[in-house]
Design a protein around this nucleic acid. Structure first.
Length: 287
DNA sequence: CGGATTGTTCTTCC
DNA sequence: CGGAAGAACAATCC
């Protein structure tokens, strides 16, 4: 379940691993992952990677020659990207890292790219929700309009955030999961940000004060930045582009901690179902 | 073996 | 018509 920090972790590794390299060959093992695009290979082969950007949980690969082409990569829940340096390839499968041996390509490998220096990029996705999608500049701009601001940007407008909350009439949990409202938070960081702000996930958005809204943004920003600094959270499927798990798992306070004492007040953490998601909170100190 | 797992989009409803 | 709620997608684990 990659959220903003996990996607950012992968983005940085991708940028290091494939920037400046030219796509030489592509293997598509599962059509659905590229939305059955018949021109996928044709358009991408020969393209040189200029860089990898990110908006919310979506990665955007740019190419050098002003071609009107961008590759969008969404990992959804079980998507993974692995960069393997050319030299380490030998025969069929190979080792991605020492702790977690993986055969690549493997059972869940959907697409594999080979670059001119024989570096390989594998897109694995067990549940097939993720996708690689080609868009032109217009399509990219349309896509971008579907994302709200990220809590980690300096330009985040707190007053606008507060006013939008006031206009809505839904649980704060559902609002924070809405990517068109605020981009980058998912189930884990929403629960963590609400715990830090002492707000119950069920609280209605129009019952949140201006001061609480400000604190919520600050806490969301803090938890996302702390996680990025540590390389993300691994709860179920997340591994980075080198096959390593994220260490922020050790810093979670409520997510997955049901029946354990709240680190702040000692009451037992509860788990309920809210906004169709497993939702964790402390009934003692979250109001 | 049924239920839980979740990010996003689509559909339905008020 | 817009917001909100729910379904759908898909495969695996327990």
């Amino acid at each position: 379940m990659p959220e903003l920090p996990e996607v950012e972790t992968v983005r940085l590794q991708l940028q290091r691993g494939i920037k400046g390299k030219t796509i030489k060959q592509i293997e598509v093992y599962h059509q659905k992952s590229i939305e059955a695009n018949r021109t996928f290979k044709k358009k991408l082969i020969g393209q040189k990677v200029a860089g990898v950007d990110r908006i919310g949980k979506l990665m955007i690969v740019r190419f050098v020659d002003e071609a009107d082409l961008f590759l969008l990569i969404h990992l959804k829940m079980t998507g993974q990207l692995f960069v393997v340096k050319g030299k380490s390839l030998s025969g069929g499968g190979h080792l991605v890292n020492e702790n977690d041996v993986k055969e690549l390509p493997g059972r869940h490998t959907r697409v594999a790219f080979t670059f001119s220096d024989d570096t390989k990029l594998f897109f694995n996705d067990m549940r097939l929700f993720g996708y690689l999608r080609l868009v032109n500049r217009v399509g990219l701009e349309q896509t971008k309009t579907r994302f709200g601001p990220e809590p980690i940007v300096d330009s985040f407008d707190q007053e606008c955030f507060y006013k939008s909350l006031n206009r809505r009439r839904t649980s704060i949990k559902a609002a924070l999961l809405d990517q068109t409202f605020v981009a980058g938070l998912g189930n884990i960081y929403v629960d963590e940000a609400l715990w830090r702000t002492r707000i119950k996930p069920e609280r209605l958005t129009n019952k949140i004060s201006r001061k609480e809204a400000g604190a919520l943004v600050a806490n969301a920003r803090a938890v996302l930045l702390e996680s990025i600094a540590i390389g993300g959270t691994t709860f179920q499927h997340f591994v980075d582009a080198e096959g390593k798990k994220g260490n922020f798992t050790d810093y979670l306070k409520v997510f997955g901690k049901q029946s354990q004492p709240c680190p702040r007040c000692g009451q037992l953490i509860k788990k309920i179902r809210l906004a169709a998601r497993g939702t964790h909170f402390c009934p003692g100190c979250q109001k």
